[in-house]
């Protein structure tokens, strides 16, 4: 616990919360403008499902980049300041620092998810949606986003800590965003191989095209799929932590 609070202490002056807030606000604004246009074209036809699906699609583009930037900022300070030897000679285990940074990044991305949920609630209330607030659906959306986030973060953190030059990590984030954005165009087998595709893949709302319109539908995500994704995230985390811990200083 003290290592986690130390990580947050070390993030002082980095304005990470502000950066996450600004980036996620751009995404939310973009999504709501899109949904707002649908409302004006089809009054009474647009609801919570539209918001959730639009946000999930936008997450595929924004969250890999936000995750890459957040993780890079959290990890880069150790490379820049040459602080590994300082931390290790103070008898802090590298695996503990790895875990603290991971939790820190997860909390920041969780904060981004909470902002999305709160903004959705406000948007729904402002547009006087007929359907009641779908609390369970919003929580499942948040859960699916976070499950994908934990895998993306574990991958980003491994790269950010293993390679000093953060351009690699940021490039990975951009590649992830591109794959995430275009994943729905791939065959399902190919799509399932890319972790960034699960922002929409684990979303409780799906869509299909019927004629000239898009129909949104609620679906149940199989627990086994979520379990496999969590397992992959845990595997990447453990391997990354071991590899980084074994690096010579």
């Amino acid at each position: 616990m003290s290592v986690i609070s130390l990580e947050f202490f070390k993030l002082r002056h980095k304005r990470l919360f502000l950066m996450v807030t600004l980036l996620i606000s751009v995404e939310i604004a973009w999504a709501f403008i899109s949904v707002g246009m649908s409302i004006s074209r089809n009054p009474g036809m647009v609801g919570w499902k539209d918001i959730i699906m639009t946000l999930a699609s936008m997450n595929s583009l924004f969250l890999p980049i936000i995750a890459a930037v957040v993780v890079s900022r959290i990890c880069d300070m150790e490379h820049k300041g040459n602080t590994w030897k300082l931390l290790l000679s103070a008898c802090v285990k590298r695996s503990h620092i790895y875990a603290a940074k991971y939790i820190c990044a997860c909390l920041l991305l969780f904060y981004a998810g909470i902002l999305q949920v709160l903004a959705s609630v406000l948007f729904g209330a402002a547009n006087a949606f007929e359907q009641p607030l779908p609390f369970s659906l919003l929580m499942r959306f948040l859960g699916g986003t976070m499950v994908t986030n934990i895998v993306v973060i574990s991958l980003q953190q491994w790269v950010s800590l293993a390679v000093k030059n953060q351009s690699f990590a940021l490039c990975l984030g951009m590649i992830g965003a591109f794959i995430g954005m275009t994943a729905d165009l791939f065959p399902s087998v190919v799509r399932s191989l890319f972790v960034w595709s699960y922002y929409t893949g684990l979303c409780p709302v799906t869509y299909s095209y019927t004629g000239h319109s898009t129909v949104f539908a609620i679906r149940t995500i199989e627990t086994s799929v979520t379990a496999v994704i969590v397992f992959i995230g845990a595997l990447v985390y453990v391997v990354g932590s071991i590899r980084v811990s074994r690096q010579e200083i």
Partner: peptide
């Protein structure tokens, strides 16, 4: 206590 090679620090702090 130790200071190994170049000093270690958090420049933004």
């Amino acid at each position: 206590g130790a200071l190994i090679e170049s000093p270690s620090y958090y420049g933004h702090l």
